[in-house]
Amino acid sequence: MVINIVVKAFSRKKSGRSQEGFFIRPAAPWAAILALLLVSGCASWEPTYPDSRPAPPPNPWPVPTETTPQPDGSESQPDSSESTPPPGETGSEPSAPESRPPVPPPAPYGRKPATIALAQQANQQASEGELDSAAATLERALRIDRRDARLWQQLATVRIGQGRAKQAEALLKKSNALANGDTGLQSQNWRYIAQARESLGDRQGAGAALEKARDLRAGG
C-alpha cells in the first residue's frame, strides 16, 4: 500500500515529460529511505539470490558463506507492479533434516530505483505510442539490471505491440527463466505467450500456453 503511494508520487512527477530531465528522479526523496527500511528488516538473512547459488564445493576450498557482497548495492525497493500478486512461495524441502533452519519466506525481487524509474518512463512512452523509445528505455534498464524478470516481461509486451510476436515469446521465456519461483509472474508470462502465439495464428500453442498459465496460477 505504501509502495503504491510511492509509485503514484513518482508518476505524478514524471507525467507527460518523459525525456526532458537530465536524470530521472527516484519515486520521491524519501523513497530510498523507505525502501531501505522495508528491506533492512530482512537483510540479516537475505543474501543475493538464495536459490541460485551453486552448491558449495567440498572440502579443499573454504566454503563460501552467504556474506557474498551484493554487487548492486544494498538499496533495493520492493516490486511496484500493481497487477501481480506477491510471488508464490517456493516451499521448503519436505524431507529436510531437522537440523536445517526454518525456511525464510522468499523475498520479493529487489528492484532498483533506477530501473523502476526507467520502467515507468517506458510505460509512459508505450502509452504514447512511442514503442521504439519504450523498447530503448527498457534495454537501458536491462543494462542496469539484467536479472529483473519484470523488465524482460515489459520489453516483451512492447514487442507484442510492435507486432514482433516471436521475439516477444522469446523474451517472455527469458523472463520466466529469471522469475525464480515467482509463479504469479510466470503465469502472467504464459498468458502473454498465449497472446503472442494467437497473433501468429497458432491456436493450439496459445491454448497450451493458457493452460500453463492456469496451472501456475493454481499451483502458486
Binding site: 547459488r53 517456493t90 516451499g91 519436505p94 529436510a96 525456511v103
Partner: peptide, 12 residues
Amino acid sequence: PKRKSSWWQKLF
C-alpha cells in the same frame, strides 16, 4: 518429485 531447495539449506 521434491520441491526445490536452496543451496544454503543444504549447508546444514
